[in-house]
Every structure is written in C-alpha cells, then in structure tokens.
Design a binder for these strands. Structure first.
Lengths: 218, 218
DNA sequence: GTCTATAAAAGGATAGAC
DNA sequence: GTCTATCCTTTTATAGAC
C-alpha cells in the first residue's frame, strides 16, 4: 500500500510540492528555534512564511507534527558535521595525534557553540518529556555518532601506542564532556553568546592537554 | 518608604501570611518544574494547591512573577549543597586529596542528577531568553559557587604540592565539566533517569583519575 | 483573604469558496 | 493547493460577593 509514494529524500522534505512548503519549513524552523514549542504560534509561522494558516495545516497536519518534522530535520542537518568518520584511521598513527584531537575539538566546539545548535539543544531538552522521540533522535544524530567516531580513532591510537586508551568509548565520552565546559553552559544560559575563536581555542587547548596527560602511553 | 515591611527571610517567603501561600508555592513549584513555563496553567496550579485562582493572583500578581519567585527560590535551595566552602582548607594538605575530590564529585553528581535539579535546569535553560535574570541567578547560585569553592581548594593543594594546579579556577571548571558528562546529558534528554549510585561512582572515578593524571605534581 | 463567576484575548484547528 | 473567515477550547486576568 502507498508504494507509489516513495520515502522523500532529505532535499525533497523541504522543497517538494511547491515552494510554499519550503517557506513554511524555513519559517517554522526560525520560530520554533527562537521561541520554543509552547511560545510558537501557528499564526506567527504562517505570517512569517507569507502563507495562510490553512496552508500550513495542509502540508503538516498539526503543530506537533510540524514541530517533529522540523526538529528532527534540524538534528540531522546541524549535527552532520560530526558524522565524518574522522581522518582515515590507517593514518591516525602517522599524524600528529595532538593536532588531530585539537582539530576534532575545534570542529566540535564551533558546531555546538553556534547559535542554531544552542537553540536546538534548548528546545530538545525543554521538550524531551513531551517529545521523547526527538530527544532520542538528537542523541543518536549527535553525541552517539561523535562518541562512536572518536572512540574508533582512540582505539587506533592505542594500538599505535601513541596513547594509552584502555576504554576508547569511555574516553571519548570524557573528551567531549571536557569540551562541553563552562563556556558551553554559559552559552546555553544566554550568559555568553557566539564565543570568539580565541575563547574556543582556549577551551580546546586546556581539554586536549588534560586528555593527553590522562592518556599518556606507559 | 515601606520600611515597616522588612525583607522576608527565606523561610518566610513560603510560609508567611497564611498556610495557603505555602500550598501555592508547593503546587507552583511542582507544576512549573514538571511542565515548564508555557505548558503550566494558573488553573492547574490553583487546583493542585486547593485554592481558587484569584487567591493565587492575590499573593503573586502574575504568572511571570510567580514563576520568577518559585524558580529563583528553587535555585537557591537545590544548589545550596554546593555552597559549603569545602573541607576546611588548612587541612586540605593533610587529607587524602584523592578522597576529597571524590567526595566533592559524589556530592555534586548526586545533587545535579537528581530529578528536581534536572527539571530545574531544563526550565531555566528553556526560558533563559524570556527570563534572563533567572539564568543569571541559576549560574550564580550553582556553578559560580561550586567553581569558586573548588578553586580555593585546588589552590591550597597546589601550595601543599600534592597537585600541580597553575590555574585553579580553570581547573575547577574542567573538573565539573568532566562530571557533567554523557550520563548527565542523557538525564537531561530523558534517556536516563535517576542513575544509581553505581553509575554515579563510575563517572566520579573516571573523572577524578583523569583529573589527577592531568595535575600530577612535577 | 478567599471564593464564584466572568471578562477578554490568544491560539489550535476546520469549513467552504476559488 | 491556497485563501478568507470562523469555530471553539484554553488561559490569563479581573469583578464583585462574603
């Protein structure tokens, strides 16, 4: 049944069936990320998209359905930067492992400290009780992938004896925890906003230094 | 002006002016922490408190004012466990510094992973744009105090040469960042709930071990 | 102070024309 | 598919009696 309507590719989710859909998606994304689920109204989304409210309901059946579609899509988009399986593993031992970790840390922090990621995190955490599937989708698209990739890299470094990493997955978790430090917390609370590259680098250097000291080869 | 009405002590905030006020505070706390600001209705708070809605408005003028009073109070209450200035500093050098750090870490994790703290954090982060004063009050009552206290302790340990801590405040931030790891994230997302002491201890041991390795005396 | 109504407004969702 | 107009529930806030 319904075999004539195949699953939409990621690009089609936004643009398929006319340009109005794209306008709705863009508007809903902006409104939900800025105001959260409760404070976002279907009226404001329709206004911002330049369409009538009924058109919004024609494309997405309800506010909850629209929210789920937008947020799940945004999880995959924003966190896809962490999906790269890291530098090709066979070369991990020959590269400067400190620089590899610093690059990964920089990339991670630049992503998660950016305003869209902070907004997405706020919304997902706030609505995790009402939309548990979104919380799970967020975790799977972001932290889970990042941990898995870094874990693989650390395992390789352990084999090459440049680091001592008896439990690569735990160490990967610890590494990202170190990066999600005080600066991240202050961004989430709105006390700091859009940190400069200098601030990010300071966090990266401190975390990598501590991580290397804790995993020095025997 | 108004000098005849002194500032209320913390206890009086809840119980002064009749027991109904206390019932309202308790009900509002429960409802706001469970549902967040937007999804909480004044009707549900009045119902849960067993009073009429008008009584709620008589004590607190508006929903926003009630929210601010409740959340700020809860920040001070929940995070006061971190306010103890740590074991008396003169003895810091003579105690087992590893055990001191483990105890602090245990105490910290037991506090922040508990359901009320997780709920409070969710609400404050979610509403940080609408109530920036609450975000600041949260940071000052919790993370700022904890960092300051641990920083003082680390400074003492550095002087006593049991650890090498050139920048005590940065190291304190790093220590707490390590503790707010994957388990904490999963609790915020509702993917894990009320972790067991065993799970907490595993995080504590890993974080303290890494921290000690990174700050081994020269 | 406290309660029972009652505004007054906002917001989610639908009907029906084109 | 899209729009205008409307329904109806929820919700903040207030009026007025006791």
């Amino acid at each position: 049944m319904a075999s004539e309507e195949p699953q939409l590719a990621e690009q089609d989710f936004k643009s398929a069936r006319g340009p109005k859909r794209r306008a709705i998606v863009d508007a809903a994304t902006a409104v939900f990320l800025e105001h959260g689920y409760g404070a976002a109204s279907m009226d404001s989304i329709a206004d911002k998209a330049g369409v009538s409210k009924q058109t919004v309901y024609s494309h997405f059946g309800s506010k909850a359905a629209l929210f789920e579609a937008i947020i799940e899509d945004k999880c995959n988009e924003l966190l896809s930067g962490q999906s790269a399986p890291a530098p090709s593993l066979p070369f991990a031992g020959t590269l400067d492992h400190e620089q590899v970790l610093k690059d990964m840390a920089e990339n991670f922090l630049a992503t998660v400290l950016a305003i869209p990621s902070v907004s997405l995190y706020r919304v997902v955490v706030a609505e995790s009780a009402r939309f548990p599937e979104l919380a799970e989708a967020f975790y799977r698209a972001g932290p889970a992938v990042a941990i898995k990739n870094l874990g693989g890299l650390l395992k390789e470094m352990d084999k090459n004896r440049v680091l001592s990493v008896p439990d690569p997955v735990s160490s990967a978790r610890l590494f990202y925890a170190m990066l999600r430090g005080d600066l991240y917390l202050r961004c989430l609370l709105g006390l700091a906003s859009d940190p400069t590259p200098i601030e990010r680098t300071a966090v990266v250097n401190e975390a990598v230094a501590a991580f290397l000291a804790a995993h020095a080869p025997a």
